[in-house]
Simulated assay, not measured.
Amino acid sequence: MNRRDFIKSMAATGAAGLLAPLRAIAGPLLSVNYAEGAPPYSYAVDGTVHGLLPDSLDFLLGEKMGFGLRHRTFPWKRSQLLVRQDDGDALCTTPTPERRLYLDFSAEPVVRTKTYLFYSATNPRAEAIQGIRTLEDLGGFQVVNYLGDAWMYSILPAGLWVYRAKTVQEAFHLVGKNRQDVFIGSLPDVKGTLSRLRLAPPVTCHEIENPRTASFHLGIRKQYPEVRDILARFDALVRRERKSGALDAVIAGRPKDA
């Protein structure tokens, strides 16, 4: 997205999505779309986008590679559609065959995760839920997920009915109120996620086996100038900053030199 198109897009869509302040404008501009209401990955506080994904990209693309970044949140399906329509340059998400049709992805993951099963401690079936160890054990339970999470729908057992909430927060709310039994989520670290949501009654979780655990990669639209060169440099940077511990520090919310 060139500077003129970027400014026009900001004026046209600024009211529709939540915007984070731009980083330095001296370098190339990259507009990144995220899922709204999806802590710890992406969420808004007082109109500013926060989370593991924008924080990591601010560090890697902004601080280290010199990009000017605009972060926007929308319902996840819309975020993806807008990038397909060239209203936005990038996503940070799990590569899928459909997304690869319009995005080139980094080889290196920005965020790696584990898979957790979330449920209410007050659920009448809590003891049975505690026995769930694999995705195949979900039969007979009410499962909730959120719209646009193509990765999760791709790994669930065939024939399993899933209630589709509008956002991650709504999914957790339904579980917390025992209106659905379980929510499956992938997180780099479960600490902090439940406290951010402040659910009552409390939601608890345990890790389950999943050979296809999600990882989040930078995906840039195929028409973006020099996209393959950008991603090659990005991959080298991710490897270097992960080896140094700086990227993990950003994800954990620690000082990068800690």
Rank of each mutant, 00 (worst) to 15 (best):
I132T: 14
A128C: 09
L160F: 05
D89S: 09
G139K: 14
I7C: 01
P28N: 09
K191F: 09
S79H: 04
A44H: 09
P95V: 01
S31D: 13
D87N: 14
F6V: 01
G192E: 11
A20M: 08
P124G: 02
F105T: 01
G185P: 11
S186R: 05
V32Q: 10
L29C: 00
A107V: 14
S120V: 05
L197G: 00
P21D: 13
G192R: 11
F59K: 05
A249P: 01
I132W: 12
V110T: 06
P28H: 03
Q130P: 10
A128H: 02
I25Q: 11
Y102G: 10
R70A: 08
R233V: 01
Y119G: 03
T134E: 14
S154L: 02
N33C: 07
A128P: 05
I155G: 08
L60N: 10
G185Q: 12
S244H: 09
C205A: 15
A200S: 15
L91S: 05
K222A: 11
K256F: 13
A90S: 15
A12F: 03
C92Q: 07
T94S: 11
G140Q: 03
L160M: 09
A150K: 10
R196C: 04
E226W: 08
R3S: 07
V227A: 10
R198T: 00
A150P: 03
R196V: 06
R99Q: 10
R78N: 10
T204N: 07
P157E: 01
V175Q: 00
L91D: 01
L160Y: 01
T96S: 07
Y119V: 05
N145H: 00
G253M: 06
I208C: 05
M152W: 11
R164S: 13
D149P: 08
M65H: 11
D235I: 03
V144W: 04
V83A: 09
Y146E: 02
H206Q: 10
I25P: 01
L22S: 12
G159L: 07
Q169D: 12
L160D: 09
A252N: 03
S56C: 07
P39N: 05
A90T: 08
R228W: 07
S42L: 02
K222I: 11
A246G: 03
E241Y: 05
K8L: 12
A214M: 12
L194F: 04
S31F: 09
G27Q: 04
D58S: 15
I129P: 14
L19K: 11
L29K: 09
